[in-house]
Simulated assay, not measured.
Amino acid sequence: METVNIHEAKTHLSRLVDQAARGEPFIIAKAGRPLVRVTALDSPLPREQRRLGFMAGHIRVPDDFDRMGAEVLQADFEGEA
């Protein structure tokens, strides 16, 4: 397995990532001491799925929700105290 120093890894990151994606992992070292191993992922991490409706039955939205505070907003816009 190839070992590269941090400076070289920064300079040639695209090439090294392509190499790892092809199944050729490498190690990044700092001052000759191995720090990390870079390998290809078998598959992308699964995205967290959004669960629509998971709170159904637990909360209630008032029927006048879209009109709540209308008087206060109107007074604010009209400059009334």
Score class of each variant (00 low, 15 high):
D76L: 09
F54L: 13
R22S: 10
R22T: 03
G23L: 09
M55H: 04
A29N: 04
A31L: 10
N5S: 12
S14N: 11
P34Y: 12
P46V: 04
E2C: 05
F54M: 13
P34H: 08
I28D: 01
A75C: 08
E2N: 12
E24C: 03
M55E: 07
A75N: 13
P25W: 03
A29K: 02
R60M: 01
A29P: 03
D42Q: 12
E78D: 13
N5F: 02
E78Q: 12
P44G: 08
R50A: 11
F65D: 02
V61D: 00
E2G: 06
V4T: 11
A31V: 05
A20E: 10
P62H: 05
G53S: 07
R51M: 11
M55S: 03
N5W: 02
A75S: 12
A40P: 09
L16E: 03
P44L: 11
L73M: 15
E24K: 10
A70V: 10
S43I: 03
I27P: 00
L35N: 02
A75V: 06
I59D: 00
P62N: 07
E8H: 14
R33T: 06
R50V: 07
T11K: 15
R37V: 03
A9M: 05
S14V: 14
E80C: 02
D42T: 13
A81V: 09
A31Q: 14
D64P: 01
T11G: 10
V72W: 07
R60E: 08
V17T: 09
